[in-house]
Amino acid sequence: MSFWRKLTDIRNWKTSSKAAVILFMAAVVLFSVLSFINLSREEMMESASDQIKQIIEEEKESTRKYLTITYNDLGAVSYLSFSTSGAKAIRESYVGFAGRTYNADMGLAKFTGQMVNYTYRMLGKGENMLHGVKLTLMLTTLSMAIGFFLSIFLALGKISSNTILSKLCGAYVFFFRGTPLLIQLFVVYFSFPIFFNFSWRGLFSSTDPEAVYKGAFLAALIAFSLNTAAYCAEIVRAAIQSIDKGQNEAAKALGMTYGQTMRTIIIPQSIRRMIPPLCNEFVMMIKDVSLVFAISLMDITTISKSIMTSEGNYLVFLPALVIYLIITAVLTFVFGKIEKRLSIYE
């Protein structure tokens, strides 16, 4: 309640927050206007050379087409290219900006065009959730959430007085921290189907062309969740054990059960202490996701590497770096806010 009141009470905002919001809104407005007046695919197609237009006409009827038309719309800027492969490859590219089309075969326009194209591909735009940034974000967020949830039980098991349970949880952590994530991923994706006689793709609709990606994603999600659970378990355990013993005694003296004590007293207090290492784990995870290259999924790193090998353009790493930095910045900001909110009582 008080949060919303503070948020809507604009008169009492700090000057810097006001300035930031004004700048942000101005940027949004500018971006929307530029996006609105930007050219559509059809409008940009008109700039094509006669040669290209002729090929398009010729290929209309043919079953085997050779011309690839790429149209990437990034809001304010768009990119269009025509290309054929083979010995006599043709290549033409254009950048659309502010309602005009620019030839992008050389110079700054070429650079802009490439950046738009690379960014577009890394963002996985025009593709479903299992490509590029979307894949990275979904895989990290989901496996962190599942892994963290599992890790609470693992940590409690590890510090439990039940020796068997404690040893079991300890063994789990030991196994998943002691073996490389890539190999765990291989085992889940390649070996499980052989042991249990199923296919990952078979778990999804056979008519769905994306089933192979979904299957690989599910395998990756399982491997990543299990792995991150082990790492988080140590974070959770350390945080729980850092809580003053007196808290436990006070709860016990009040007649609270072990479960009640953990749920309402110990874990809520320890969560704040987990935030910095969890944020760290999250950021590491974002980069670890690139291991999905091994099971034919394409995340940001995999896409940029593949662009680099096929086009030999090392500038591809620029947008990749920027995208990673933005994600990490947002994440650090969010975790910082959460930490601040949770430490309200201190």
Partner: peptide
């Protein structure tokens, strides 16, 4: 208790 042991988050 000597050291109160209040629940600091409540």
């Amino acid at each position: 208790f000597q050291r109160f042991n209040l629940f600091p988050h409540k």
